[in-house]
Design a protein around this nucleic acid. Structure first.
Lengths: 370, 370
DNA sequence: AGGTTGATTGACAGCGCTGCCATTTACAGC
DNA sequence: GCTGTAAATGGCAGCGCTGTCAATCAACCT
């Protein structure tokens, strides 16, 4: 009487017409209830919900996307080169894994879906690629992971295309987007202080590669912590590890073969810290007895290393959840509108495990093999 | 002249109408070219492709999905409980990670997208949940991972709903679907033989939990290998590790505290093998000198353990690629039709690293602490 | 040359939903 | 009781594509 299904056949999956018929309302009212729009009497809402439940109805994503402009989809862009490298050598990428999963769980709560795409910022056709990808997927929001989250070109492209996006672990810029990160500098300083508090004065530092904004920030934290304690900053106590396990190993090798090696090393991510432990162990140094090592990020692997790694936690899960939340909120509020410039700082925390302790009494006692 | 965009305004993203106008053909012809349908003159194809390239056009997924019934989307179902457990304790799940990534890469090639969903087989509303999820997403195919791939109920549900699906690492059933796996039994036998060939006669076995079809198969391979060599099968040389690190540790503890402990252990997955190494080391046993340990799966972590783990490779990447390929082929051939019952076996391979070697001369020489 | 077949193309109707606008209904206020 | 206003609904036109089927065109027969 109110509305009839256009198809006279028993459909495989129920459509909004069936629900409307069963509830005795128009499809538009069903739509209202489903989308939480106001001005539907409680009694009617109940009837609709009952019909929905009975039919096991769920609106078809593609139909919603086509009609409403909202795709109920969020996309995460990963750096193609970085990801493929990880992939080839069979290393997992905890950052991506945690982020993706946390994001997915959060999306689920809102009936959203999270897609993952690889993006090669160096490709000559990035612009075209981004445009067509956005067109095809029509995502309600985009999540940028490092190092892409720091890429000026990508950022301005996304801005130009008017896509709401969030940048993770990045230095705030004045782009119209949400930037989510921890206070890298403060956290790095705290990590360094942990070592100093333990009694170390020769504290080595392994930095990450350029291209990652956090790299510079963490180094700055290290420097400022030393400076604040009146400890001189020595170039020979610093080496680059490019944020990789191998790089960390090599950097540690350089630091440790010095005539006057550090008694503690702050590696600016866990992978490098693990590499450093590996290298130290290989050289016959006991960690932490002979050499304390602290990492950064507190990736899952940190708790299972030997010895378990002391690290500064970067709350990736929270960042993922927050990004998803805000992106969805934005989409719900004003479809298609870019996300207003904003900044969110998530709290970090020192996680003390077994890879750090006070320095050995006599530094000379250590036996350092070539 | 042939076709005009229905909207008189400059759209944000180009639609098929713009392309058609620019190429001077009807939208249907553009559609044909884009979908590789036959019967379009080469000259016309070229014009269309040029227009597509110039505009950076890509068909909108939702429109395609709505109109054609194909969503260009594949869904992977993960076991909710298992996944959440991994998640909470901060362990990564290499199986899922590799599968998902390999699948994603393969999807990309065909313009497809891979979604990941959590499914709780124990929920009283699974049926409803699956139905509505399939309705909402309308995926062109579903990938089932263990232990869900073994779940009778889920399988029959999927069959009933007519969704084409692939089961990974599962024992073939007579459901209308593709079953992809390695020859678990043969592989397990080969792993066992590797140990026997090395000279071991007391070979322990750590089994996985029930619910995983591969668990029984691997144990069978172990048994048959021993039998084939005339080595008696002893209950005390076997323990259950539930496919987890902790379980592997505990199982190893049980095996090693025996009066006449094994000189080698075959753990039926890498996680347990790593746990076994951990336990052995904790007890003062050197791996592999005092105790050889072989794993199964050859997960990425195997190559980074200390010592690097000898393992039997399960080609998860290939399985993911294959599943995606076949599912897409099926969708292209006959939209909506269930996948014909089929079986694919992917090749395994022994990867010898440093955790296995001949047994010690005198077993009594070993010092086994409680 | 007329007819026939098959290749090539276009017209058009939806797919299932939401946005916009019209309509109806419910309550105030006077 | 009668407008005025806001709350509740319904009607309907698409969103951008693909499927179906009809129309056109070219080459091939007899």
């Amino acid at each position: 009487m109110k509305a009839a299904p256009p198809t006279g056949e028993a459909a495989q999956a129920p459509t909004i017409y069936e629900v409307a018929a069963k509830a005795g309302v128009s499809i538009k009212t069903v739509s209202r209830v489903l989308n939480g729009e106001p001005n539907v009497r409680p009694a009617v809402q109940q009837r609709v919900r009952a019909a929905v439940a009975e039919l096991g109805y769920r609106p078809k994503m593609s139909a919603r996307g086509l009609a409403g402009g909202r795709s109920y989809t969020l996309v995460t862009f990963l750096d193609e080169g970085l990801t493929m490298d990880h992939w080839r050598i069979g290393r997992s990428n905890p950052y991506v894994e945690r982020l993706q999963f946390a994001g997915m769980l959060q999306c689920r709560k809102a009936g959203y879906h999270l897609l993952v795409e690889l993006l090669d910022p160096a490709s000559p056709r990035v612009e075209q690629w981004i445009q067509s990808t956005l067109a095809a997927l029509n995502p309600d929001g985009v999540i940028l992971t490092p190092p892409i989250s720091e890429d000026k070109k990508i950022i301005s492209l996304l801005e130009r295309f008017g896509a709401p996006f969030a940048r993770l672990s990045a230095i705030p810029s004045d782009a119209a987007c949400l930037t989510i990160s921890m206070d890298e500098t403060a956290a790095a300083a705290e990590a360094t202080n942990h070592l100093i508090d333990l009694g170390h004065t020769r504290v080595g530092f392994i930095s990450g590669g350029p291209g990652f904004g956090s790299s510079a920030l963490r180094e700055q934290g290290y420097r400022s912590a030393l400076a604040a304690r009146g400890i001189p900053i020595e170039k020979r106590l610093m080496a680059d590890g490019g944020f990789t396990f191998e790089g960390g190993k090599q950097a540690a090798a350089i630091l440790l073969k010095d005539k006057n090696p550090p008694t503690a090393i702050f590696a600016s991510n866990d992978e490098m810290a693990l590499g450093a432990i590996h290298e130290a162990t290989r050289r016959g140094l006991a960690v932490p007895r002979d050499l304390s090592i602290i990492g950064f990020d507190d990736f899952p692997a940190a708790q299972y290393s030997i010895p378990p790694l002391t690290s500064m936690r970067q709350p990736i899960d929270s960042m993922g959840v927050l990004a998803v939340q805000r992106l969805i909120e934005n989409a719900a509020k004003q479809r298609g509108a870019p996300m207003p410039k904003d900044r969110a700082v998530v709290p970090h925390a020192l996680v003390v495990r077994a890879s750090t302790c006070p320095p050995p009494r006599t530094a000379a006692k250590r036996a350092t093999k070539a």
